[in-house]
Write a protein that binds this DNA or RNA. Structure first.
Lengths: 242, 242
DNA sequence: TAGATTGTTAATCGATTAACAATC
DNA sequence: TAGATTGTTAATCGATTAACAATC
């Protein structure tokens, strides 16, 4: 299937809505982390449901698709307000719009990838950002092999232009895909920039002086290890079945 | 710093221990998912502590480093047995060995990467597998541009050799980094193979007929979205501070 | 109106933290 | 022995599920 068939965020959210979205009361005082972690999953399933052409979905249907309880779905969605209608269920497009609002899709966030190695290059070429309304506007590296070139659609600049270009483009999110030994230095450089969030693949914890910068640490290796744990457990259990 | 300074698993676990490890009573009846998800983090911090040259650590010290309660650390570690000593704390090397055992590091798992695109190539070039004692023995793809070549240290074979080669090498873990539309077909091909675990990056849920195959789904985009959520929330909150 | 399904409260379950006795 | 720190139980907290009244 062609990616172009996928629901495009712009169909539902447009530039003019951005201000409205940010200032809207989408963010209730405190929503539990458990709920927030589940929101992207709703986002994914709703996209799929839209692609299937469905316009209406009940918590019971969703619960079957997603393998969670209908109760949890209703509870989760209600943290942000009543998106459904008794006797009917949820309007898929409306629900999707709401979830997008909550997750900041359509806020028009701009991102820059710092470190144009294997991982950085792989990320920037993926459709992930476009699907989520995040615009990758620049990459940075020090290697003469890549500086000045384009990876995917994104131009690679030298690290010594970092501060200047972040400001120029008004970059909100820094994606760190460089070797971990440089992480602290780069974090320091981001300290007084436009950066509001750091997506950190370096494996090194990052300390920011300024509050107000959110850091999300990614450790894909952790996921491999839990898989290994489960595999080893399975082997052990089938060995000792009797 | 040179990666070669990092603790090498082989220093602590060797081939001969593998059988012992798998059959050891490391796997208590049921350990809660919350605990299991935290184990890889202990693994990472213990490596760092070893690198620092420390031989002894208390739950209080660890709790400061890791930003969790000492109580949780003691509780977690005790799910698998008493690894510490009253009045002393934990022997770092011993604890590391135990965590490795539990996580299946040193089980000598073999992996194959299916899909030699950007993501697959980036993964296979990373030191992640070596650090965790997982051996990537083959890659598979259909593109004539890569089949027959090597990516990192790993040879790429054509997909029509998949079944044969998985059997030949006794591959335990399949890493799916191919376009999601092919995921179901590939899953079917893995059905009667040596595969015991699937690390699934395709974004498509995988259904296996055979129980006994563990699937770990990775959605890095979800992590980006929670970051966006937090950034948007922060923006909203500082806008409405008064 | 009757049927369906949400929103929401109350009950249950699981995970975290606190506290302290055991013991090195 | 005194001091330190674990192992472990009990108390607290948070998250999930069940149930049902509200309502479309």
């Amino acid at each position: 299937m062609n990616d172009k068939n996928e629901p495009i965020i712009e169909d539902i959210l447009n530039e003019e809505n951005i201000e409205k979205i940010i200032s809207k009361n989408s963010f209730r005082p405190e929503v539990s982390p458990a709920v927030i972690k589940r929101l992207p999953r709703y986002f994914r399933y709703l996209r799929e449901i839209i692609r299937m052409g469905k316009t209406r979905v009940s918590s019971a249907e969703l619960s079957r698709m997603m393998n969670v309880t209908a109760s949890q779905i209703r509870q989760d969605l209600n943290c942000f307000g009543g998106f459904g209608q008794q006797g009917y269920g949820y309007n898929v497009n409306y629900l999707y719009t709401k979830i997008c609002e909550i997750l900041g899709v359509g806020c028009g966030f701009r991102a820059a990838v710092i470190g144009a190695g294997n991982l950085g290059s792989a990320l920037v070429r993926s459709p992930m950002f476009e699907k989520r309304g995040v615009d990758v506007v620049a990459m940075f590296d020090v290697s003469e092999n890549v500086v000045g070139k384009k990876i995917g659609n994104v131009k690679v600049y030298h690290m010594n232009e970092l501060g200047e270009r972040l400001a120029k483009y008004g970059v909100d999110i820094a994606i760190l895909t460089l070797p971990k030994e440089y992480a602290p230095d780069v974090a320091a450089m981001l300290e007084n920039s436009s950066i509001k969030g750091i997506w950190n693949f370096t494996g090194k914890e990052i300390q920011m002086q300024t509050e107000n910068v959110v850091v999300e640490n990614v450790h894909i290796g952790d996921s491999l290890m839990t898989l290994c744990y489960e595999v080893a457990k399975n082997m052990y259990q089938s060995d000792n079945k009797d």
